[in-house]
Design a protein around this nucleic acid. Structure first.
Length: 273
DNA sequence: CTATGGACCTGAATGC
DNA sequence: TGCATTCAGGTCCATA
């Protein structure tokens, strides 16, 4: 579900409201991807100082460490006064009760995670965050930096984008969208892209992700931000999920293929290998 | 080092 | 109606 825009929209929807809150209780449901890494009780009494984002991870700075949250494929967060959210449901697997409200992770498939680590420099934090690529909305994400990163990879550009080692946050929906906008076929070897095409791709990534954030993310099934509102970018997707339908640019037919067991959507006429 | 396929898990949609 | 199969927004891990 959540790619960078959805995670960022989620972050923005509760960061200011939870900042300064004191943790009063922690409730765990069924196991998530990794164990919490500490006794739930160890979080009680700590203060939530800030909420940051790195790639698709949310980083909650606590007074005595860092709480990493990941939404996996099907996760979403809510933050509201506990009475407003009601009792925990079958798929609510992590709850952070605070004196400002309840932060609840809803994740049916349980590919998500909530992991506490004493610091960002811990072995675990570095294992999860250390290999991540550039932040696409940061100043460091330039065409030259993208080109340098892509030069190391002979695999298809779509799969290199998804891997997140060069640039983070581009998931399966936005990868197809971004490549369409840049006019690049998903199968093109990453290292084969010219400087000009890298520039177009860098701009496309920036534009699409920023626009998706501004639209509140993409809600295909059930994504909503921490205040419960859905996204609207799905009305602006050009190729994702549109196999067999006409290309909105040239009128040709959108096609799909499978790369690394993920579906890619593209226009063969508008996108060149 | 990079590239690839499998693994994790549940629910909805599709097919016979 | 019932049951099996396929697919879904992520990414770590073992293996080549």
């Amino acid at each position: 579900m959540p790619e960078l825009p959805e995670v960022e929209v989620t972050r923005q929807s509760f960061a200011a409201r939870i900042a300064g809150a004191h943790i009063t209780a922690v409730r765990l449901g069924k196991p998530l991807r990794w164990p919490l890494g500490c006794a739930p009780q160890a979080l009680v009494g700590q203060q939530v100082l800030a909420v940051r984002r790195r790639g698709k991870y949310l980083l909650l700075d606590l007074s005595a460490g860092l709480l990493l949250l990941h939404l996996g494929m099907s996760g979403s967060l809510r933050f509201a006064p506990a009475p407003q959210l009601g009792p925990a449901g079958t798929h609510d697997h992590f709850e952070l009760h605070t004196d400002r409200g309840l932060l609840r992770l809803h994740d049916p498939r349980r590919f998500g995670a909530a992991v506490f680590t004493p610091s960002e420099q811990s072995a675990q934090a570095r294992k999860l965050l250390g290999g991540l690529g550039l932040e696409p909305l940061s100043d460091e994400f330039t065409a030259a930096a993208l080109q340098a990163g892509l030069a190391r990879h002979r695999a298809a550009i779509k799969q290199v984008l998804l891997a997140g080692k060069v640039v983070v946050g581009v998931g399966n929906i936005y990868a197809s969208e971004v490549l369409f906008l840049a006019g690049i076929a998903p199968t093109a070897p990453a290292c084969s892209l010219s400087a000009l095409r890298c520039r177009r791709l860098q701009q496309a990534i920036r534009e699409v992700l920023a626009r998706a954030v501004a639209r509140g993310g993409t809600t295909l099934r059930d994504f909503s931000s921490a205040d419960g509102s859905a996204g609207h970018f799905q009305t602006e997707t050009q190729v994702y999920g549109r196999a067999g339908q006409p290309c909105l640019r040239c009128g040709g037919t959108i096609e799909s293929l499978v790369q690394g067991q993920r579906s890619s959507f593209y226009c063969p006429r508008c996108q060149r290998p």
